[in-house]
Simulated scan of single mutants.
Amino acid sequence: MKKSITLFFLLTFISILSSQSTIRQKTLVQKDSIKKSKLALESQDKKIDSLNNVLSVFKPFKREAHASYYADKFNGRKTTSGRKFDNNKYTAAHKKLSFGTKVRITNEKNGKWVIVEITDRGPFVKSREIDLSKRAYMDITSNKGSGGMLVTIEIITK
């Protein structure tokens, strides 16, 4: 009888300990899942915000336009608009579009696009339509070693 009572208390004690550890594990899992869901919501908000910044009307300007990018030697020089050129920003040069115009440039080969602001005049080569900053160009190109690509230019209107 003493053995059975001792065994009963021992089993009860073990079950209490195991249930407490299970409860701890469950609470840890719940805390982790809460953290993950908060992170998921935050990343979704960022995606939605970035989409809201882009939602505009795109007016087609030119298809199959030849685009190139600025050489590094122009970095830091003044543009025609008076602003300092930075090859790490999303800017472009166009012969006719007014300064401050935002345009969406889409690579026709792979569908990637960027939005740039016109801050300069050029390019001064007849076969080219638009000069992009190096960062904008590298974001949409399919061949990082090439110096030009065919793009579609769309003017952003609100």
Rank of each mutant, 00 (worst) to 15 (best):
V125G: 02
K62V: 09
Q20T: 12
T91D: 04
S33D: 07
V114F: 03
N88A: 11
Q30C: 06
V103N: 04
F74P: 01
T6G: 03
L41G: 02
S15D: 04
K109M: 07
V29S: 12
D139M: 07
I155S: 02
T22D: 11
N88I: 00
K62N: 06
L28G: 07
S146G: 13
K89F: 14
L150D: 03
K35F: 09
K89P: 09
R83D: 12
S127Y: 02
K78E: 10
Y137T: 05
A40F: 09
A136R: 00
Q20F: 13
Y137D: 02
D45T: 14
N88E: 15
G145F: 02
T141V: 15
S127I: 09
N110R: 05
K59H: 10
S81K: 08
I140A: 00
A92M: 01
I23D: 14
F124A: 11
T79N: 07
Y90I: 05
S33R: 10
S15G: 05
M149V: 02
L97W: 03
T27M: 08
R121W: 05
S56V: 14
A92Q: 00
D131W: 01
S98H: 07
T6W: 02
Y69T: 12
G100D: 06
V116W: 13
F99W: 13
S15C: 11
K109I: 04
N107S: 06
D32A: 14
S68Y: 06
K47C: 01
Q44V: 10
V114C: 03
A65G: 15
F9L: 11
V29K: 13
K102D: 11
S133R: 04
F58T: 09
M149H: 00
S127L: 05
V54E: 15
H66L: 15
S81H: 08
S15Q: 09
L150T: 03
K126T: 13
T101S: 14
A65W: 05
T91Q: 07
S56K: 15
I153F: 01
F99M: 10
K73S: 12
L28Y: 04
V125N: 08
Y70H: 01
I34R: 14
K102Q: 13
K96I: 15
L28P: 00
K134N: 06
K102G: 02
I5L: 00
M138K: 08
R24E: 11
A71R: 15
I16P: 00
A67G: 08
Y69C: 13
F8K: 12
L7M: 03
D72Q: 06
G100Y: 08
K38E: 13
S18M: 08
A71H: 15
K26H: 09
T12Y: 07
D49M: 07
K112E: 04
R135K: 15
S43W: 03
K102L: 15
K26M: 10
D86Q: 02
G122L: 06
Y70R: 01
T91Y: 12
Q30T: 09
F74M: 09
G148T: 10
S98R: 12
H66S: 12
K96S: 12
Q44D: 13
N88R: 14
I156E: 15
R77H: 12
I14Y: 06
K2R: 08
G76N: 09
N143T: 06
E64I: 02
R121V: 05
V114Y: 04
A65L: 03
N143C: 04
N110G: 06
A40C: 02
G122A: 05
E108H: 06
R83S: 14
L39Q: 14
N143Y: 10
D131S: 04
Q20N: 13
K112P: 00
V57F: 13
S33F: 07
